[in-house]
Nucleic acid binder design. Sequence first.
DNA 1: GTCTATAACCTGATAGAC
DNA 2: GTCTATCAGGTTATAGAC
Lengths: 230, 230
Amino acid sequence: MRAKPQSVSAKDLATVTRLLDTAERLFGELGYDGVGMRMLADEAKVNLGAATYHYGSKEALYIETFMRGFRPVNAERLRLLQDAETQAGGKLVSVEKIVECMIRPPFESGLEHPAFHKFLARNLLMPPPFIHAAIEKELLPGVEVFIAALKRARPDVPEDLLHLRSMFAMGALLMFSIHASEMPGMNNPKSREAVLREMIGYVTAGLKSAPVVPASERPRLPFPPKPPKR
Amino acid sequence: MRAKPQSVSAKDLATVTRLLDTAERLFGELGYDGVGMRMLADEAKVNLGAATYHYGSKEALYIETFMRGFRPVNAERLRLLQDAETQAGGKLVSVEKIVECMIRPPFESGLEHPAFHKFLARNLLMPPPFIHAAIEKELLPGVEVFIAALKRARPDVPEDLLHLRSMFAMGALLMFSIHASEMPGMNNPKSREAVLREMIGYVTAGLKSAPVVPASERPRLPFPPKPPKR
DNA sequence: GTCTATAACCTGATAGAC
DNA sequence: GTCTATCAGGTTATAGAC
C-alpha cells in the first residue's frame, strides 16, 4: 500500500481553498446573483468544470463559504462570554463586558478578513433565501445566550427591549463591517482599538439605559422577529 | 389646438407608476441582479418592450426607483431639523431632538412603505456600483447638516467620533427597516411609537455619551469614510 | 406608447475524455 | 480531480409593425 502522494492532496486543498477564498471575496463584493461560476472559476484560477465538481452546485459553495468563516467567530464569542462568567465566579458580568464578548471577535476578525466580513454582513442583512435556514441554525442559539446574560445584568430592562437593542447593536457592527475596508486608518492598531472601544461604549450606553416608554404603556414588542417563509 | 387626451396621459402615468412600484418591491426583495426585466414586466403587467422603452435601461429604472422614494424622506428630515432650529430661536437644539429629526421620517415612511425601505436599506448598505454616485450626491450633504447640528449640541465630542456614532445610528435604523416587515406587531400604532421612542432613546444615549478613549490617546478616526473607486 | 420577434450573449450544470 | 464541449434556458436591449 503506497503512501498517498502528498502533492496531490496539497493541491486539492489549495484548489478548494482558492475557491472558497475567491467566493467569499466576490460574493461579499457583488452578492450571490452578481457572481457567476465563470467569473469565480477564472479569478480562483480553477477550471469551470472543476469548480462545480467540488461542491456540486453554486448554492452549496455559497453555504460552505458562509460556514467556514462564521463558525469560528461565533464560537469565539460564546467562549469569551463563558470565560467572563467563569472568571466572575458568582458575581454578575457587567453589560460592558458582555458587549465586549459580543463585539470583539467579529470586530477583530473583520479587520483581519475584511472580505469575509463584508460577505458575512451581506448574509446577516439580506441573505439569499436558500441560506436562511443555515444562518438561523448557526446564529440564533448564540443570540439567546447573550440575551440571557444581558437579562441577568439588567433585570429591569424587559426582554423584548433587550432583543430590540441587540438588533440595533448588530446593526452598528454590521454597518462598520461593511465600511471597514474603506477606512484607510484601520491598518493602524491604535485606531482599531480606539474604534472598537468607542463601539463598545456606544452599544453599552444604549443597552443599559433605562427604558424610555414605561412598561405599563408599552405593548409587547414583536421580538425576536420571525423570518418570512418563502 | 386640441386638449391633450387625459386618458392617455393617465394611462402612461399608471404604467410608469406600476413599473416603479414593482421595481422597488422586487429590487428590495431580491436585489438588482436577482430581478430580470422579464420578471419585472410580468409582475407590473407591462409589456417587456414597453418596460425598457420608458427608462431606456434596467440601470436607469433602478436609479429612478431610488430617487422617487428617497428624495421626499430626505427632504423631510432636513425640514424637521430646520423647524426645530427655528423654534429653538437662539437656543441649542438637544441631541434627542436632532436624533428624532434624523430618525422619525425614515422610520414612519418605512412602516408605510416597507417595500421601498427594504430597497433603500439595500442601497445604503450594499449599493450596486453604478448607483454609488447618485446616492452620495443625495445623501452626503444632508449628513453634514446633521453632523454640524450634533457638533453644536455636543461640542465636547470630536467630530470624527460624531461621524462614527452617526454611522452606528444609521446601522440601527437600517437594521430595523430590513426587519420591520417581518414584525407582525408593527401594524399597531402604539407599538410603532414605542419602538420609535426606544430607538431614539438608544441612539441618543450612544451619541451624547462621553468619549471612551481620551482625545489625547485617540488618533484621528477615518471619518467620514471614502467610498472605493471601481 | 405598445407590442412581437429576435439578436447577441450569459447562466448553471453535466457528460465524457483524460 | 481536471479539462473541453455542450445543453437548455436565462439575460438585456433593440428594430420595426401597429
